[in-house]
Write a protein that binds this DNA or RNA. Structure first.
Ligand SMILES: [Mn+2]
Ligand SMILES: [Mn+2]
Ligand SMILES: [Zn+2]
Ligand SMILES: [Zn+2]
Lengths: 172, 172
DNA sequence: TTTGCTATTGCAAGTAGATTGCAGTAATTT
DNA sequence: AAATTACTGCAATCTACTTGCAATAGCAAA
């Protein structure tokens, strides 16, 4: 059984450039707006799944602050958080974005079909560390065969007691 | 809109009676209260993981309604929802209860170490069906070895397009 | 380039799951 | 029975997320 796990660890990296991705989205949606581009760019550059708020912060930081030299025009206003939620919802319907997990601060989103890692959180101290590349591919394959579903994705999060916190346990 | 889990959990293979479970909890907590017993009883009898609100409703239904014959005493008042949340939190800290998944209506809780199944939800029509017994044991074993964590549990949910809804897809 | 259509946006208000403060209650020990 | 204090209920609060609506901005036809 562990052989399955080892086999699943060498992941195919499907590299689609941001421009290719945007072109694909342009064909799929009625309007390729500034907000949609910003959300896709944020997710494209992300090293791990992001919450809507993290996407918002990422976009806001990428925009010039208002100074006497750079006046407050519509170009340098951040995208409203509600617009980010609506764009994520639309991109989800197109299967271009997926909810990967529900963290303590809300859902985390990522581009579909990207190699990704999962994390484990200590329920006692809150420490969150990587458990490495996703090992769910074979399980999803199995589910696809068994159920006939397509576009299968998963929401996963692990919890436990980290090495520093292992004591006072009532369980086996 | 949202479908309810269909027969998501079987009874524990290692049969611990409710009385044995309560005895174990009695030794682990300072006070074995009416609320704690009610929460544990609800989870013990559940066929699938329950939300805090579902536990609340379960407890309320199990208590006599007030009539002229059965006056409104403290015995037939339901347990307050906030008390259910606090008891679940305490039982989680003792690793006796775990959050199994985040449904559309909130977190679902179950007794620890119970065999369980997982489900897949169609993102288009909302249909939710079983994918069979949990297949995560090997992955958890792998994570335990790699990270040194103990008491490892997981939150998992699958989504996809069901056979009846497979069309208009922008992904591969 | 200008114009028209309407998808999309920002703002504000609303929803609902979950948390917190606190005064009173009840489970347990002596 | 009395003492101790973990626990409870109520109300207020927090916050991730959604919804209504008038204004805006993609996009393409003219
Ligand atoms: Mn994964
Ligand atoms: Mn499982
Ligand atoms: Zn820890
Ligand atoms: Zn469907």
């Amino acid at each position: 059984m562990l052989s399955i796990l080892v086999a699943a660890m060498s992941l195919p990296s499907v590299s689609l450039s941001l421009e290719q991705l945007l072109e694909r989205v342009r064909r799929a949606v009625p309007r390729l707006t500034k907000g949609k581009k910003a959300v896709l760019s944020a997710l494209y550059g992300a090293k791990h799944p992001l919450t809507a708020h993290e996407i918002y912060m990422h976009i806001a930081k990428g925009i010039h602050h208002t100074t006497s030299e750079t006046p407050n025009t519509k170009q340098n206003l951040p995208i409203d958080l509600v617009t980010i939620y609506r764009n994520l919802e639309q991109l989800e319907r197109l299967h271009l974005v997926v909810k990967i997990e529900h963290s303590q601060t809300g859902w985390r989103y990522a581009l579909t079909d990207r190699p990704h890692i999962h994390t484990i959180t200590c329920t006692e101290c809150g420490q969150e560390i990587s458990v490495g590349e996703c090992l769910m591919a074979d399980i999803e394959q199995f589910i696809a065969q068994k159920t006939g579903f397509t576009n299968i994705h998963h929401v996963v999060h692990f919890t436990g007691s980290c090495p520093q916190c292992q004591h006072h346990s009532a369980s086996t």
